[in-house]
Amino acid sequence: MGFKLLSKLLVYLTASIMAIASPLAFSVDSSGEYPTVSEIPVGEVRLYQIADGVWSHIATQSFDGAVYPSNGLIVRDGDELLLIDTAWGAKNTAALLAEIEKQIGLPVTRAVSTHFHDDRVGGVDVLRAAGVATYASPSTRRLAEVEGNEIPTHSLEGLSSSGDAVRFGPVELFYPGAAHSTDNLIVYVPSASVLYGGCAIYELSRTSAGNVADADLAEWPTSIERIQQHYPEAQFVIPGHGLPGGLDLLKHTTNVVKAHTNRSVVE
């Protein structure tokens, strides 16, 4: 069995187990497998329904001669939608809004960016022009300005110390501490036991640490421990890039980060 097929099978099995364990909360999309990078042309966006009122959005972007996937989250909030992270750029984010209108038909009224990198804030200006209120932590807003990236308009308070959590509509926002970046936030959907790890969490097929220019490698494993301790009931975990899975993604990420750190020390 090929690795790609095995990865998709694991996603399907995880979703099936969740649907059985929580039949009222989960209505997993039966329309197909989780979209992969090879299936999404740059400039297009796919939506994948995880649970009743919960979707991931998947886009792709060219970077350094390669094409990478990027995940975000959409959560229903009454007759409105909360968006977590842009679709990595203005063109993708405009396509995301169009796809949401086509498939869901509810307005996106608020959006949260989970850290300051372009795959999370690139497209904020498109959201703002569409009347979406954009939010991020003060740290993310400051770092985005320093980096020359787009800056969300509103500040999220109460997320300055490791372990801080605040309720934001249908989700809980959690600051686990520094990891992929010093400002990275985690998003949890309690009604569906869905954990969105953003770039602080890796997919299972990833074996290298990737972009760690703004990471705190020493603190990252401790931050992941905080996530595990705060959300032990999480059933569906979405990484910032690639295929979702279960809580095993947290341990896998820790292993990859520690291996990278150990290699760096040896070198």
Rank of each mutant, 00 (worst) to 15 (best):
V146K: 13
Q49N: 02
Y12N: 05
R46F: 15
F168C: 12
D214F: 04
R142T: 15
I84W: 00
D183K: 02
A234N: 15
L83F: 05
D79F: 12
S161I: 07
G123W: 01
A25N: 02
H154M: 10
L96I: 14
P41F: 04
I40Q: 06
L185H: 03
I50F: 08
V75L: 12
I40C: 10
V45W: 01
T93V: 12
E44Y: 04
L143W: 12
L195D: 00
G245C: 02
G131A: 11
N71C: 03
Q229D: 02
A19L: 12
A25S: 13
V266Y: 15
V126L: 13
D64M: 15
G169H: 10
Q61V: 11
G65Q: 12
A59Y: 14
T140Y: 02
E145F: 06
P232K: 15
F116A: 14
A51S: 09
D64N: 12
E80N: 09
L6M: 04
V124L: 11
A144M: 15
K258P: 13
L143Y: 11
W220Q: 03
R128H: 13
E39A: 11
L5C: 12
R110C: 04
I100A: 05
E225Q: 04
V166H: 02
S22D: 13
S191M: 13
W55I: 07
L247E: 09
L82M: 12
I104W: 13
S56A: 06
Y68S: 14
I17P: 03
T222L: 14
V166G: 05
A87T: 12
D79S: 07
L250N: 03
Y175R: 12
S139E: 06
L73I: 03
I74Q: 01
G198E: 03
E172V: 09
L243S: 06
G123T: 01
R120A: 14
P239S: 14
L83Y: 00
M1Y: 15
T109P: 11
T86P: 13
S31G: 10
S62R: 11
S31H: 04
V187K: 00
E147N: 10
Y68D: 08
K4L: 02
R120I: 02
P107Y: 03
I58E: 05
V194R: 01
R263S: 09
T86R: 01
R142A: 13
A19V: 09
E233L: 11
V146N: 03
G198S: 04
